[in-house]
Structures are given as C-alpha cells and as structure tokens.
Design a protein around this nucleic acid. Structure first.
Lengths: 196, 196
DNA sequence: TCATTTCTGTACCGTTCGGTACTGAAGAAG
DNA sequence: CTTCTTCAGTACCGAACGGTACAGAAATGA
C-alpha cells in the first residue's frame, strides 16, 4: 500500500512554485528547460518524471497560480454587492500585480499572448483561463442585488477584466502600485453604485 | 551620386510590412528567421544586409507599425476636446484591434510582454513605445479646454491606455469588435464630459 | 540478504536557433 | 567592353533548444 522504491528527493509543490516564478518572469517561450531545472533545483529527467513535459509543467504552474496567487479573485466574489465585488477585485488585483516578493504583472497575461509557431495552444489555454474568470464574475454580477436592470452583467464583467488586464500590462512595464490604484479610482467611476 | 552596383531586387518597405504581420502574430520570441524570410520573400543574407539583425528588424517593424497602423492615435489627438480625443482614440483603437485584414490585437502589446532571457530590452523597448503614446495623450489632455481642474491628465491618460491595452489583450484572445466597443461604452462613463 | 522498484545524474539525441563566409550574378560608371 | 560595386543564394557555423537512454544509487518488500 505504501509507496515503493526510492522516494522523491524534492518537494514537487515547492519546485512548482519556483517554476511559476520563472514562467511569470520570462513567459512560456522565453523560458528554457535549463532555466526551469536550475530554478527548481532538480535535473531534467526528474522534472520530466514528475511533471510530464514543458507544456504540462506550464499548465500545472498556471493551475497552481490560479489557485494560490489569484485567491483574491474568488474572495472578491463573496462581497455582497456588485459594486463591492468589483472594487474588491480591482483593488486586490492592483496589489497582486505589484507584490514586491513576486514578479510584476500577471502570469496569465505575460505567460504568452501571441500564438507562437507551435505554441498556439499556450496562448489559447491562457485565454480560456482568463475567460473562465470573466464568466465567473459575470455570473456573480448577474445575481447581485444592486445591479440596475439596464446593466448587462456580461459587458460589465468584461469591462472589469479589461481594466485588470490593462493594469497587468502596465505593471509588467514597471508601473507603481499607486499608479494602478489611481487607474482603479477612475475605472470605478463607470461602475454603478455609490460614488466614492 | 546615383546608387552604384546591382540594385536591390525587392521592395524593402513591402518586406517590412510582411515582417510586421509575422511579429504581430507570433511575438518577437515566437518568430524565427525562417518565418520572417519566408514571409518577406527574401533569403537570410538579404535580410541581414537590409535591416541589420532580427532585433533591428523588429525595431524597424515597430516604428513602421506605429507610423502606419497607429496613425489613428495621432489623429485622435487633433480632436478639440478631451472627451472627443478619448472617445475618438478608444473607438478607432477598438476598430484597429479587430481589423479583418490584420492580425487581432496590437503589435506593441503581444510583440513581447515578458522579458525573455536575453530579450529583456525587447519588452522594455515596447513598454517605452507605449509610454510615449501615453505621455502624448497626457500632454494633449492637459491642454484641453473642457478638462475639469480637479482631473489629473496624467492619471486620465493612463486610464485610457489601460482600457486600450486591456482591449488589446481581449482582442488577441478573439474578442469581437462589438464586444470591444461595448467595453468602450462603459469605459467612457468614467471620462468627464457630456454623458452619452 | 536479496530482488524489485523508483528516483537521480550524466551524457547524449536530433532539430532548430540566430548569424555568416563565400561563390556568382547583375547592374552602373568609365 | 571592362571594371567596380552591390546584391542573391547556397551552404554552413557554433550554440541552444526540448527531450531521452542508460547506468548507478536509495529505498521498499520478502
């Protein structure tokens, strides 16, 4: 019943966290296996045995990133009103994009936007991941008690995600946390609810 | 005085246009010299003689892209009011991001966001290019007659660019032109000026 | 103790990468 | 026509890419 054979000499989750950072900083195509294995502290065959191949590793890194580094998004959905959901999300997003202990920006944006020659599915995978978050937000907004009936929750969710992704682009370019929050200040003026 | 020797057998500007498309579609790192020379209809040494190297070619492609494909941005700056400048820019931007005869999205965004191993200056170069546009917009807004005195033109310009870049991310992921304009509809609610 | 199972590490695979020598061909100037 | 200059094309360079075969080491079960 117990695991047989020689046990693994490294922590797979810790190694995955290192991989997240490398992918985050350099994108999928800009990251080589040497970059990865050096950062993870293991060698190539161990990585292949544990994670499959480079693309599998990337998908697992994104999954773990979505669960850990983007937990704030799920928490934002628990706010009682549409206005509070959106404000909570954009504020926490601006903070997450500029965490001093993490690469600037967002893995699911700078991981890969353009479909490389054979890596078209990478950009597509990330796009679907972002679309999933957008859909969850739209569903939540549709059920909010304070959303005026003339407001389309799908369009509003898309707008919020556009602000979030635009801020991610700015953060990747070195924008400060204060600058991102100033943008959120303005963006919130377009959101129905009590004015600031 | 006249050019001596054998004349060039291809149109350098036309070749550059082909290169723009390839870089636009696959990003800097995702584009190989083989991709480029095949699309440009020339062979490698001709490309190197005419443009320098891959990075030089990319910089020239971006410069030409900024001049031709983003001419709408300069035209928007000629609108008389801040509100008109912003609306004109965002509308034309949404159209440009979804031109059926061009790749979806924006070269200066999907060309390269993450700094690859040695290609850090590519992401930096693109970021500076975008920052230049943002500064031009801020300067224009600062001189607009209808901008309320309590509004910071730098922050407003940054907000507009965030919406533009977020829309670029969405367009690269396949969003429709109508979806982008619906986002602009909402984004404009945060812009001072006559309501829609 | 001993066979079995699994992981680690070295060394290597074929392919593709960006970049370039070098041979001819083609046009301009004299 | 000759000479000079520049371009076109083939063929190649070393390096880095993603991925793997294989041998040795470390743990388990009997």
């Amino acid at each position: 019943m117990a695991e047989r054979g020689r046990p693994r000499g490294f922590d797979a989750d810790a190694a995955l966290d290192r991989a997240i950072e490398v992918f985050w900083r350099h994108g999928y195509e800009g990251t080589s296996l040497t970059d990865l294995t050096e950062a993870m502290g293991i060698n190539r065959p161990s990585m292949y045995a544990a994670f499959g191949n480079k693309e599998d590793l990337f998908r697992k890194a994104v999954a773990r990133y979505a669960e850990a580094d983007m937990a704030y998004a799920r928490e934002a959905l628990e706010q009682p009103t549409a206005r509070a959901v959106i404000e909570s999300f954009l504020r926490a997003n601006a903070d997450a994009l500029t965490r001093p202990d993490r690469p600037a920006g967002c893995l699911s944006v700078q991981g890969g936007l353009a479909g490389g020659t054979d890596n078209g599915h990478i950009a597509e995978f990330l796009a679907q991941s972002r679309a999933g978050g957008e859909k969850a937000l739209a569903d939540r907004l549709a059920q909010a008690p304070d959303l005026p009936p003339e407001i389309d929750p799908v369009a509003l969710a898309r707008y919020v995600m556009v602000v979030s992704e635009g801020n991610a682009v700015h953060a990747a370019a070195g924008a400060s946390r204060a600058a991102l929050h100033a943008t959120v200040d303005i963006a919130l003026l377009a959101v129905p609810g009590p004015a600031r």
